[in-house]
Design a binder for these strands. Structure first.
Lengths: 156, 156
DNA sequence: CGTGTAAGGAATTCTGACACG
DNA sequence: CGTGTAAGGAATTCTGACACG
């Protein structure tokens, strides 16, 4: 399953995502004028423009930040207060990214259902997540030996 | 913690992400000419253009697809074969999204460490994921009562 | 303070075509 | 088949300014 993570890590890496001002505006509901002003105030940032590049380039991190600022402003906060609120949430966002990037070991098959191998639970057992039909998530502990047996090879 | 998921779900919803051909090209390494040709062949798709909109608009789904096609082509596959390989992986991508969107119940604090509440393990216990300093992920089972007690309120 | 708009120049995207193979 | 390029028109982004408040 190392094959999966190696290949797919780059596919899921949101840090590769880049946007120009028009898309970021349509994605978040903030106007281009607002985005330029927020950047001038230092509330958000765009990537350094190499050489003679004209258009601003925003990253996924900025997309998240703008989305949060917009959300808090729509809730009644002033721009400055909304930016402060968003900054506090930033830590949680980073934490979630760490959990996601560390916890995914690959897919497996448990009791005939597709499961996600979440890695070692303790020295003897591996944690699996299963998606039942009711829309929730079930968790199963299986022996490490059984885990590697259950973990299916992806189509080469 | 319902507060967190309600507010942040829209922030993390990658389906809101949109790109134009230039960004998608720079993000994936495929040329604009390639993207137009692949679309003409039906291997990828761009969003319907409303009214007189000129520029193509791509979604995150297409970003993932293009990344995979590019990866397999760089590995030596022909365009058609690479697209077939990518299509097979698509199912796994969708599965991973379902696991992520269902499994996140919010943040908690376990043994003084930040943890991710992954929801019910069984009728009595809640599953928590903890990030130790060694870079891995540890899992803990706590009683449901303790879980709700440990789950910290996010800054309002 | 925070955002809208009109203004002119620069960069992007569009399509259909010619090219090579 | 699969991609590059030159060509001209259309849409986007840029900055600094004027406006309202």
């Amino acid at each position: 399953m190392a094959q999966f993570t190696d290949e797919m890590r780059k596919v899921f890496d949101v840090h590769r995502l880049v946007f120009r001002i028009g898309e970021l505006a349509s994605m978040t509901g903030a106007s281009p004028r607002q985005l330029r002003y927020w950047e001038k105030k230092g509330l958000i940032s765009s990537r350094e423009r190499e050489d003679g590049q004209q258009a601003r380039v925003y990253t996924f991190k900025t997309f998240v930040m703008v989305s949060m600022i917009k959300y808090f402003m729509d809730s009644g906060y002033t721009l400055t207060a909304a930016a402060q609120q968003a900054q506090q949430r930033e830590d949680n966002v980073r934490l979630l990214h760490r959990f996601i990037s560390r916890g995914m070991q690959g897919f497996a098959e448990v009791d005939g259902q597709i499961a996600l191998n979440l890695g070692a639970f303790d020295a003897q057992q591996t944690l699996m997540a299963v998606l039942p039909d009711d829309g929730g998530v079930d968790y199963r502990l299986v022996s490490n030996a059984e885990a590697s047996r259950l973990t299916r090879e992806l189509p080469a």
